[in-house]
Design a protein around this nucleic acid. Structure first.
Lengths: 117, 117
DNA sequence: AGGATATTCAACCTAAAGGTTGATTGTCAA
DNA sequence: TTGACAATCAACCTTTAGGTTGAATATCCT
């Protein structure tokens, strides 16, 4: 990060984006299908402008992608983007790390069985 | 949340706490062993006061616990606290959800085998 | 008791976050 | 071509976040 003390790191942006309840709610709704900014705004008691800003924050963090078709901006969840943060966190969670360990063991075992038989 | 529009939700606090690089660095270091506030402060080019505030943010989010022994505050990682956020995120990650699915399948299969044999 | 050490409290500063309103840009459709 | 619609830009306001310094509190040690 040469001139980038100024620019937030990727994890800063992802966690920062998820630290807001409105944005988490948006992510939840985008899980089902893409939504335009206007559709996104519908449930919230705030201006379209505010929603537009939230969408931009999610986009900056890479958590959504935007497809512009005419005047409509369709916002789509970028599921892969969650992995980085999940991976970071997994080091600190007993629950998940133990489950991941179990899974790794399972996969190794399976591979071993498959090689044999 | 009756009178709690004011108070941030649990996920707000957890993600908010992790949105700062200094605090993530602290978490990383606490993974190995508990550290006092002074020990925590050592690598960072900021006042002890600032570090104390960061520790408090992590504590408020439930990501660390504090054991006071005399004048020293020993900060310890609260690993279980990461689970809630991980769980929330897991719905949105292809990577993790697919792995979790595989694990679930494995566990079911295993249980089935064990019941049979 | 008295001084060093560990930590927090309090007041302050600056920048960023989340919201507003009003104007602007671009696209659709009659 | 004109008006409605989708979204952003720009300016502004208020609260919060991250940092500072200086004083206070509590504990340890001799």
């Amino acid at each position: 990060m040469t001139r980038a003390a100024e620019q937030a790191s990727s994890l800063d942006l992802v966690f920062g984006a998820l630290a807001d309840a409105t944005r988490r709610s948006m992510v939840e709704r985008l899980r089902k299908r893409p939504l335009t900014v206007t559709e996104l705004a519908e449930p919230y008691a705030m201006s379209l402008n505010a929603v537009s800003k939230h969408a931009k924050a999610l986009e900056r963090a890479g958590l959504i992608r935007r497809h512009i078709r005419g005047r409509e901006h369709s916002c789509e969840l970028e599921r892969a983007r969650f992995d980085e943060a999940m991976h970071w966190m997994s080091y600190y969670s007993e629950f998940w790390s133990s489950r991941m360990d179990a899974l790794e063991k399972h996969l190794l075992e399976k591979r071993r069985r498959e090689r044999k038989g």
